[in-house]
């Protein structure tokens, strides 16, 4: 039993590393399609972490969020984005306010910052494992960085989804997930939000002949 428990634990930690690496991969990928693929992998690692925690700690109600993450975030939402990028016909590189090496450096700093600020925080003693809080916070921060630095509307939505994955990891490791009703509602909001934002990306493309958000400068004052 304890052997099994330990191997599950080390597997969870391994997936945690994968989770962080895919966050980096998302912010480092120069093309939209690869960014979406990394988002799918990011969500996959999240689904595996959730399932392993559910199995290892006998938290049955986490099984449903794990399955939903697998279905919605690794398959449905990436499919929507694949379709979106194909129909938008964006194949050139994503433009960013800062270049990729620099955004990687910034992301690394954010990870350090997340570990530094939460490392010896006495008030937070999560139900699962201490190491996942800085990981989740780092992901949230990287998501924000991605939203702030990318000029492309689709990348901004991807940044938002990355941020949401971070929040989900936070909920799972700190509290074994929120009540199921709430989790279901959040999944619903994320899915509907992704669809609505997708529709708006099209509207932006049609009106502004491009999906760079720095063209959106009509409104001031």
């Amino acid at each position: 039993m304890s052997m099994e428990h330990e191997s599950i634990l080390s597997l969870i930690h391994f997936m945690g590393m994968a989770f962080l690496i895919f966050s980096f991969a998302m912010i480092a990928s120069p093309q939209l399609l690869s960014c979406v693929r990394f988002y799918a992998l990011h969500s996959l690692s999240l689904a595996v972490i959730t399932a392993l925690i559910a199995y290892g700690n006998h938290v049955e109600h986490l099984i449903v969020p794990a399955i939903l993450t697998l279905v919605l975030k690794t398959w449905v939402i990436p499919q929507i984005f694949f379709k979106l990028t194909r129909r938008l016909g964006v194949h050139r590189e994503i433009e960013s306010y800062i270049n990729i090496p620099f955004s990687l450096v910034l992301s690394t700093l954010l990870v350090f910052a997340a570990y530094y600020t939460t490392g010896d925080l006495k008030v937070l003693r999560p139900v699962f494992s201490n190491e996942f809080i800085p990981l989740a916070i780092a992901t949230i921060l990287i998501g924000m960085l991605m939203m702030a630095t990318r000029k492309n509307a689709v990348s901004q939505v991807l940044g938002l989804l990355l941020l949401e994955n971070g929040l989900f990891l936070m909920a799972v490791t700190m509290t074994f997930g929120m009540p199921l009703l709430v989790e279901l509602g959040i999944f619903f909001d994320v899915l509907v939000g992704a669809i609505i934002m997708g529709i708006f990306v099209f509207k932006i493309r049609n009106a502004f002949e491009g999906i760079d958000v720095d063209d959106l400068t009509v409104l001031k004052g």
Partner: peptide
């Protein structure tokens, strides 16, 4: 102009509300 307004509204409010979710957690 209204597409721009709606986009900013969507993105900024969704990020804001994501932070609120952090608080609820």
């Amino acid at each position: 102009s209204s597409i721009e307004a709606a986009w900013k509204y969507l993105i900024l409010c969704t990020v804001g509300i994501a932070l609120a979710l952090f608080g609820i957690i």
